[in-house]
Amino acid sequence: MARTNTTSRTDSDRTDLYQSITDKIITELEAGRVPWVQPWASSKASLDMPRNGKTGDRYSGINILILWDAVVANGFSTNSFLTFRQALALGGNVRKGERGTTVVYAHRFTPDSERRRASEDGREPGSIPFLKRYTVFSTDQCEGLPDRIAAPPPPVPEGLIRPEAEALIAATGADFRIGGDRAFYAPGQDYVQVPRPDAYFDPINWHRTAFHELSHWVGGRSRLDRDQTGAFGSKEYGREELIAEMGGAFVCAALGIVPTVRHADYLGSWLDIIREDNRAIVRAASAASKAANFLLDFRGELATDQPDTGGPTTWREAA
């Protein structure tokens, strides 16, 4: 009986956590604020992806949105966070009276009983998803930390943003075509098309559009293989657009390009999707994070000249 109560309480806690995250996102969207497009111009922190100050690891998925909100709402000067114990391990501490930010850890585990049954049945064991809360603090909320941890990163130099974006797109090897009057990813032919940069009122929007469409490209069958079969206006289509919007915003942030909403007209459909399923925003943020990481991993190839493999031509003028 005690085991059943514990399981029930755990399931309830997990559901409450999904719901609390979902409720916060809905509140933001209903107010016309898009959580993955923060008002960075008024922020004290440089645009960057949130990361752990001790390990240097980047936070992913829904935690990006949670921590970006904390950075802007609290006026933090950095996107660096630590747990209470990590601050102590670094020789510092969280200042008395500071309130942390709750982030989540999503994973799966396989109970021993399931392993035994699977072994007896000759099949692969199943796993159970779980979501766990933990608290982190901005390095601004700590004292006594080493300078290399506490100092906010310098802003990205003005002239490095666009060349880095261009280099990243080229490094993907994607069939990336410039031209036409609309931006899209064609799954059947596996290419991206984006209008010329001078077709945009604000040229910086070209970069945001490019990474939005490349986030769709990442979901192609030979890469992350997301379901991209939804017809325009369907919930499946809306989910894919939500993933691409966040994925593009995450890549822009990593490159120092301030993200904005490219498809604000989808706001209503995103709200419908999130209201219907309190896990939808967590799943979408996770998929967007995977898409952004897939693209950003190509930065490792930028330092090395790549041989001509005869693959798709990049940066070509669309017919």
Rank of each mutant, 00 (worst) to 15 (best):
H216K: 08
S127N: 07
P129C: 03
A151E: 15
G233Y: 05
D11R: 13
I274N: 01
C142H: 06
D277F: 09
I128T: 15
K24E: 13
C252F: 02
R95W: 05
R262T: 06
D48Q: 14
E120V: 07
W206A: 02
A253P: 03
F137R: 06
G179Y: 13
A171S: 15
I273P: 02
A45S: 15
G233D: 04
T10C: 10
F298V: 04
E245Y: 01
R262Y: 02
P157Q: 12
P312K: 06
Q86G: 07
V34S: 00
H207T: 11
A73W: 06
S80Q: 11
T229N: 10
T135L: 11
D308C: 05
F137N: 04
K24G: 10
T10D: 12
G230K: 07
V136M: 02
S46Q: 14
I257M: 04
D13C: 03
D305F: 04
K96I: 07
V192W: 00
T4M: 10
S289M: 01
G100Y: 13
L90G: 06
N278C: 09
N79K: 04
T209R: 02
E120N: 08
F130C: 11
L65N: 02
S77M: 09
A199L: 09
A167M: 07
M1S: 14
E245Q: 04
T15R: 10
E143H: 03
D121G: 03
S20C: 03
D112A: 14
G56W: 08
T22V: 08
G56K: 06
F250L: 12
D272A: 13
T313C: 06
P195C: 11
A150N: 04
F211G: 01
E164G: 12
E301Q: 07
A89D: 15
F137D: 01
S222W: 01
G238M: 05
T313V: 14
G230W: 11
A249H: 01
I25P: 00
E240R: 05
T15S: 08
V251W: 01
